[in-house]
Design a protein around this nucleic acid. Structure first.
Lengths: 344, 344
DNA sequence: CTGAAAGCGCTTACAG
DNA sequence: CTGAAAGCGCTTACAG
């Protein structure tokens, strides 16, 4: 009903109780040197008044706030929003607030976000690199200034930073091996820029699977795209020309895989009979397209939790711990081929 | 290279320049009472030192920070992440940071988020209600305390608050009318709780369209669900039993529409030939399912921008301005029926 | 046009 | 166990 905006302070409580503000502050913070009686009295009155400490004042005094910045390429990809979910869960329990920024896959916006967060004096930064980020100068500068940083998923490989990733190599290896066992003789690969750790890992998983099953690597079966649907379509059109013709497309992302799938269908290939297709990330749409797309659950929530745990454990600056999470491959109809038993 | 964490302050600059901190502060804030020469000198040195004002100190002093809290039901629905995008664009230009919380459609979590934001002393709150929120006591309390609030999409109808919504009634009206014109004689409706403004509006749009085209309202053609895929499936199974049998399902959400569509297909109805289906929100998956789903573009980015503008214009507390945005209906294959010209 | 001083609300050595 | 005092870094009346 009233428009008064003045908040009540420790001085108000002190005055009302006839004690000092120092004592009120200590009582509120459960300082053991305060008598139980005083503590209870103070806490009771504070609660009755709905007292809320002024975080700006305490942050200013303590020289550190209670906010951590999070930068993701895009907030509306289910993988990243799951990560945020996991981070929030862990960190809000520890009394931290989150400030979330999006790089939108642009190096420029990533730098801006970093600026914004430093300006807001966050206690640390948790982030995944934008697709454009290939030079780590802007990150090193912060690390050298002693800023706490934890990376997840897309991480700066040449820097000794704390990071959480999934075993991308293993996921790609498992998919490729499974497809070969199901009778695909020439699986192709569609990936993103080799400058990014996850794409490098996925590609090497594919290559190692070929090698370990005795298959030969065919250069024209490997495409690099921007990982959009359009990119996937384009990659399909190029790679499908190869001789021998590929009978599977292992894609390092769901959007590209969807592009491959659509382009294949529109060119009258049957999926999975003629061509098997798999993606990566288990985006929301993957089980709902026709045919449902085999993909990889990257365990976003768990990744977020682990990254937050790492952040909380971190003493000063990053020291290069790396946590690797085991992903789940979700085999769906798009790769469901009968094993050729040679009985026909 | 060095681990020094001490930031440089206006006093450092003042000392170096042999002037007072007051002057430095004024020069940095472009106070007109400072001579151009002094201003330039200060700003140059500040830039050279990479000076960054301590926002906690200035917030404390000014009695208000520069952060606004945003609460959405869920960060990974494209509609809401677009809204955040729009808000961020407008507000970061005005020097505000965002603190984003998710209610996860739970009243409890919504209250927690409000607590968190008040605790962080945000300058105001922009939010969309959770599905569970039917009582506005917790919001009134804040409004009475003079907190700046702007609502978007799901808004507390009985409160005189600033809000941005789309014209849900018009969108539902247009879809229903179009389907009737295309020869659907008995369009059914699947909506959410009538306690929520958007579902109430969409339902009345459907009802008014029936009325204005002279169709009769059939109670068993109207279902209320939780708006999940499962809810849509269940609603379909119930409503399809009605006599007369419905030949279209106008759904107030994409997930429910998808559930209806899947359940219909699995029961050997053809879509759109036997049954037309439409959704709401234009979620990412809608163009990619089979058949592509007619839906409504709720203009998330624009809604975010408008809400942010309203927030910036807001003098003190909300005064009940309401902005209504015109949505786009995206007709896709799921409602594509030939107009029956009666020539057969 | 510039400066000295007070104060935002808290925390924490220092003293008792 | 409690208090008086200083100070975090800024902004802003007040004075000149």
């Amino acid at each position: 009903m009233n428009g008064k905006k003045r908040h009540i302070t420790i001085h108000d409580i002190a005055r009302e109780l006839g004690i000092s503000a120092s004592t009120v502050s200590r009582a509120l913070n459960n300082n053991p040197r305060i008598s139980a009686a005083t503590r209870d009295m103070v806490q009771k009155l504070a609660a009755a008044h709905g007292y809320q400490p002024n975080v700006m004042a305490s942050s200013l005094r303590k020289g550190q706030g209670n906010t951590v910045g999070v930068i993701v390429p895009n907030i509306n990809r289910s993988f990243f929003s799951n990560i945020i979910w996991g981070i929030e869960e862990k960190l809000s329990g520890a009394g931290f607030n989150l400030m979330i920024c999006q790089s939108n896959e642009s190096l420029e916006k990533e730098k801006e976000a970093l600026q914004t967060l430093m300006h807001a004096r966050v206690d640390g930064i948790m982030m995944s690199l934008s697709m454009e980020t290939q030079d780590y100068g802007h990150l090193e500068k912060l690390l050298n200034r002693g800023i706490r940083m934890v990376f997840f998923d897309r991480v700066p490989d040449t820097l000794a930073v704390d990071a959480v990733v999934i075993d991308d190599h293993a996921a790609a290896f498992r998919i490729t091996t499974a497809l070969i066992q199901k009778g695909c003789h020439h699986p192709a690969y569609v990936g993103g820029s080799g400058r990014i750790n996850v794409y490098r890992q996925r590609k090497s998983g594919y290559l190692d699977a070929l090698k370990s099953s005795g298959s030969k690597v065919i250069a024209s079966h490997i495409a690099e795209t921007d990982m959009t649907r359009q990119g996937g379509r384009k990659a399909f059109r190029e790679v499908i020309q190869s001789d021998p013709r590929p009978d599977a497309f292992i894609c390092a992302g769901d959007l590209a895989a969807h592009g491959v799938l659509l382009e294949a269908l529109e060119n009258n290939f049957r999926i999975p009979e003629d061509i098997a297709v798999s993606g990566f990330a288990n985006e929301e749409f993957t089980p709902h397209i026709t045919p449902p797309l085999t993909s990889v659950d990257q365990k976003g929530i768990e990744m977020g939790r682990q990254a937050a745990t790492l952040f909380l454990e971190q003493e000063a600056t990053s020291d290069g711990s790396r946590i690797v999470i085991e992903p789940d491959v979700l085999f769906r109809l798009s790769t469901q081929r009968e094993i050729n038993l040679g009985t026909e």
